[in-house]
Simulated assay, not measured.
Amino acid sequence: MTTMIGYCRVSTVEQADSGLGLAAQRETIQRYADAHGWEVEWYVDAGHSAKNMDRPQLQAALDRLNVPAKRRDVGGIVVAKLDRLSRSLADFASMLEYARGRSWSLVAIDLGVDTSTPTGEMVANVMMAVSQWERRVIGERTSAAMQAAKHQGRHMGRRSALPKATADRLLELRSTLTLAGTADTLNAEGHTTATGTAWDEHKVCKTVHRLARDAEAARLREAVLAS
Rank of each mutant, 00 (worst) to 15 (best):
L62E: 00
V113Q: 00
A50K: 13
R100V: 00
G120Q: 01
W38A: 10
L62R: 01
A46K: 15
D45R: 11
G75V: 05
P68A: 06
K70P: 00
F92K: 09
K51V: 15
S86G: 12
Y43C: 08
R100W: 01
S88H: 04
R31P: 00
P56A: 12
G112M: 08
A60R: 15
G37A: 07
I29T: 04
N66M: 15
Y32I: 00
L65H: 14
R102T: 04
R31T: 15
S94Y: 11
M53F: 11
D73W: 05
H36K: 15
Y32E: 09
V78A: 11
R72Y: 09
R87F: 14
Q30M: 02
G75P: 07
R102V: 02
V40A: 07
N66S: 15
S49Q: 10
M122S: 13
V74Y: 10
G75N: 08
A61D: 03
T119N: 12
G75M: 06
L65R: 13
G101Y: 03
G76K: 10
R71K: 14
L106E: 01
I29D: 02
D73F: 03
A60H: 13
R55G: 01
E121R: 14
F92H: 07
R100K: 13
S88V: 07
Y43K: 11
W42L: 05
G76M: 09
D54A: 10
K81N: 05
A93R: 04
A90G: 11
P68S: 04
V113P: 00
A99Q: 02
D110N: 11
S94I: 04
L89H: 12
E97M: 09
L89V: 15
R71Y: 05
W104K: 03
V40T: 10
I109T: 07
I77A: 07
